[in-house]
Design a protein around this nucleic acid. Structure first.
Lengths: 351, 351
DNA sequence: CTGTTAGCGCCTTCAC
DNA sequence: GTGAAGGCGCTAACAG
């Protein structure tokens, strides 16, 4: 780490001077295009060596300015607090890096002002693409991007200002509903014991999940109970409250529960913790999204897992296909349990 | 959103031409320094208006080149899969934004090659500072930064290549150990039932926690059992295995358990799920780090929470104080339960 | 009050 | 094979 000029980053001029060559030669060598220009290998090596010694490091600001390519890929999401968004972020980073881009992901806390200002900031940094995840209404942000000539893709929730990649919630919901019905029947309960709890009415994901839920019931010619679907909101407290009410009315829990989010499941667990132990075994549970703790709780729970790798891959494909008028909606299927081996490979010092 | 020149981002030249003024006037107006230069308010308004219509957006690459200030703040961390790192990322983003910087955080999956290449990338993007979180040996990265004249701060785990901000693990450990002992005694058990499980011997955080554990025992003149500390590793499977062995040897669980990480706690929960229900109530548990699911499991668990806001604030203070030879080690105290009101304020559509 | 100009560091063409 | 020069978009003197 022998920086001859500590504190000041070195430039190609420094290298040119120390090696006694010209800036263009240095530039070519550093870009790997030197072979095409028949530059002496010896010269090239000398320059490379010198660059290392000086701790040289391209100035992407200058290169980007010249080439009008920043090398930055942006993504905004609400937060990192669940495995879905955390996984999206991680996968995005990996795939961006593998394309030679520097990932830059920002959490907005669902604050509309932050969303706009972050988008503007990323645009000023001249990101080459922007993925917008989990926004109910991404259109204003899409428009900002379009105006700046930057491609944006909506993830998780669709919008009409850009192409969107979302989980196939309806199909997934039907699949898990089907599975829960099987389990209920196997336990000798009625299928119409199943309750879909959580989420917000008229919100895209919730509506799709409700539709899938009904699909599965109808496929078996089962009439859903009046109150089989309850959109009590996504958060834990609301789900806990809703369950409490049902418990008091019914004198017990429903035998089958499909929770509309990991946070709703959190609320359910909080409620279960207040009940006698055998309550845990009395109920068959399903959940959209996955969490490592929840997966091992002492009750029968099945978690629907989103395919973050698939989502990100589709999104990159969309930006790479290049049609700026594209507004297609790509559906990515879900799965159960672990989806990627490596994802769970915790390193020795992971905690 | 009327971009007169869709697809091409507009520049100050475009604005200068359309408003019939000069680039410097435009520049000053856009930077808000126009009052100082006594530019007519009317002109200013015309320019501002035009900028809006053109969907103008500063090119930070060019501005950065000129001012040699990128407006970027970097942070690297192993992953986002637990609440500590997720919170660090979120807090970093908030605080960076409030300082007018654009946060750019990258997860490295603890891959040393990725760590180096990400650092180099961030350095080429000319980030103005770099926070390095959760690395066992951050020194090589610190050196890269120093060579480039960029200030770096180590977070969570210390290093000798830069100042470090870490949680006061020893004090925290002593506090929670003390609390668990109280609980054990209240239940009529011996204090030497307490076991510290998980982590890696000779690793900084683990060693500090062991020291704190012993501090608390010694303060009460209790001799720790031979096998009171078991560094079985951080991951869930290892913790589960270690507990299984103890269970078989003892015929029951130890009455008190202090788990060295959220992942180790995960392993414990997995093991508990295999036991009869009353096992959950038989044990008093503590854990370093916090998780929303774990916090509401049906057993007596106390979670030590790290002060992510404090850590990030100290880190920014360190870079702002400016002494590049500073190698100080700042300790940030821990707390129990919720530490910030707002942190748990889930928005309506959060899931 | 406003316009002109000289770079910031880099890449690319075009001479030599 | 190598050097000189122009310009990416912006800012800060410095002239008018």
């Amino acid at each position: 780490m022998a920086s001859s000029n500590p504190g000041r980053k070195s430039t190609i001029y420094d290298i040119a001077k120390t090696t006694g060559s010209s800036t263009s030669t240095v530039s070519m060598v550093l870009n790997g295009t030197w072979a095409r220009y028949r530059i002496k290998e010896e010269t090239a090596n000398r320059i490379l060596e010198c660059a290392r010694e000086l701790g040289y490091n391209v100035n992407m600001k200058a290169r980007g300015l010249r080439l009008s390519r920043s090398g930055l890929a942006g993504m905004i999401l609400p937060h990192y607090r669940n495995r879905f968004f955390a996984g999206l972020a991680q996968t995005f980073e990996d795939q961006a890096r593998s394309r030679g881009l520097c990932p830059i992901v920002v959490g907005t806390q669902r604050d509309p002002e932050v969303e706009v200002s972050v988008t503007e900031t990323l645009l000023s940094q001249r990101v080459e693409l922007l993925f917008i995840a989990g926004l109910r209404n991404p259109t204003p942000l899409n428009e900002l991007c379009t105006a700046a000539g930057i491609r944006s893709i909506n993830l998780d929730l669709p919008g009409d200002g850009a192409p969107s990649v979302v989980t196939d919630n309806r199909k997934g919901s039907a699949t898990i509903t089907e599975l829960l019905i099987e389990k209920l029947l196997a336990r000798g309960h009625d299928a119409d014991e199943l309750v879909l709890l959580g989420g917000v009415a008229n919100e895209y994901a919730t509506e799709m999940r409700i539709a899938g839920f009904r699909d599965a019931l109808e496929a078996r010619h089962i009439t859903a109970a009046e109150d089989a679907v309850e959109c009590c909101g996504y958060n834990a407290a609301a789900a806990k409250r809703a369950l409490t009410v049902r418990y008091e009315k019914l004198g017990r829990l429903p035998f089958g529960l499909l929770m509309n989010s990991i946070t709703a499941l959190e609320g359910m667990v909080q409620f279960m913790a207040t009940l006698p132990h055998d309550a845990w075994k009395s109920v068959v549970v399903g959940c959209f999204d996955w969490d490592p703790f929840a997966a091992y709780l002492p009750f029968d729970v099945t978690m629907l897992r989103q395919d973050v790798q698939g989502i990100i891959a589709e999104a990159f494909a969309l930006v790479e296909n290049g049609d700026p008028t594209d507004r297609s909606l790509v559906m990515v299927p879900t799965g159960f349990g672990k989806m990627y081996e490596e994802e769970e490979q915790t390193k020795e010092f992971d905690r």
